[in-house]
Amino acid sequence: MLRFLVRRLPSVVFVLLATTVVAFLLPRLAPGDPASVAAGPEATPEQIAALRIEMGLDRPLIQQYLDWMGGLFTGQLGESLQFRRPVSELIGARLESTVELTVAATLLMIVVGIGLGVFAGSARSRWSRFTADATNTTLLAMPPFLAGLLLVILLGVTFRVLPISGEVAVLDDPVIGLQYLILPAIALAVPMSGSIAMLVQSSMDNAWRQDYVDLAVAKGVGRRRIAVRHVVRNSLGPAVVAIGIRFGEMLAGAVVIEMIFARNGLGQLAVTSVQSADYNVVQVLIVGAVVIAVVVQLLTEIAMATLDPRVRLGV
């Protein structure tokens, strides 16, 4: 494992470094001037110019980049141009919301995905197989924001059962907080659980055809028992890995869901920061997302090797 990590190190470092460059340059390439956003619509050019200097935007790009990188290694993420507050504080204030949403959606995805997959994988009658297939496909095809909007119409407008937008931190008030969490979590989890279900179903199909199942059948073990003891157990490996990958994607997927359900999470922060050209926040969020993606990728490879001895940690 250590050898594997050492071998992967150069490419990981390269990707991360390249990402910091891209994350730094991309928002600055976009037209738009954070100073004029901060100065407001009726500001004079002199006021804007003064702000540019105050924000440090008049310094050479290279110097800005090196300062930022130096800060990254010492834990100083920089200061938001929009709010004049440390980026770490802004992210910290919104982290809980996004993490709550992601965790809730992941739990839902696991329950629904594996449940549906096991159902589909063990269904025998034509009709139940068809139902399972149709459900899977629909879930898979359902864009999360659409699921969100439909849920809002059904449960928030037609039958006013659940709050459709806003949030209350679960830690502050579990009963109310969870109610705010249900709809966005469902919306986010739906399409992902479809793909998990498909994965479970196909590996179960595969497992049924294995020799040890034939052996068990020959020994007269009940179908139910075989399903539980052998098939399901041996089919969950890929699903676990996929769930890991999905968790990383969910953090990114939360952006649109947060917009629809008006949650003050990292996604909202990303959107407002991009809109007001708050480079300092945008670049940290991008690098953060990439770091998570890279780490998840590594963990997945390690997990696959642990689950399946046939996979060796090669390149």
């Binding site: 738009g32 619509p41 804007i48 809109q275």
Partner: peptide, 24 residues
């Protein structure tokens, strides 16, 4: 245009030939 893009162009007189504004 995003506000970040619109406003500097507005104060520099680079918008147009026509542009929509709102003001408080």
């Amino acid at each position: 245009l995003s506000i970040a893009d619109f406003e500097p162009q507005r104060s520099a007189g680079k918008l147009g030939p026509a542009y929509l504004i709102w003001s408080a």
